[in-house]
Amino acid sequence: MNIDWAALASVFGVSLVVTVALVGLFSLGIVGLAKQASATTSGSPVRARAGAYACFALCAAAVGYGIYLIVA
């Protein structure tokens, strides 16, 4: 019996980091947009919006990479 602990550990590590990073980014983007929409907070709304879109772009890139992994 040959259990590939290294592969299991890397699946665990990669899943953990990618999931938390993606969900974190997406949450930042969503919160940024929500704050900007209500416009009560201080700071430039343009920058908040740009930041939010940057977050979403990174998430979209991750989804694109996921599709690439499935197809390849």
């Binding site: 890397s10 699946v11 899943s15």
Partner: peptide, 20 residues
Amino acid sequence: GFAAQTSAATVILASSHLGF
């Protein structure tokens, strides 16, 4: 729901491409 589904998608893709 978003966190759960994202985690599931990541784990499935990571596991099938890292050999476990």
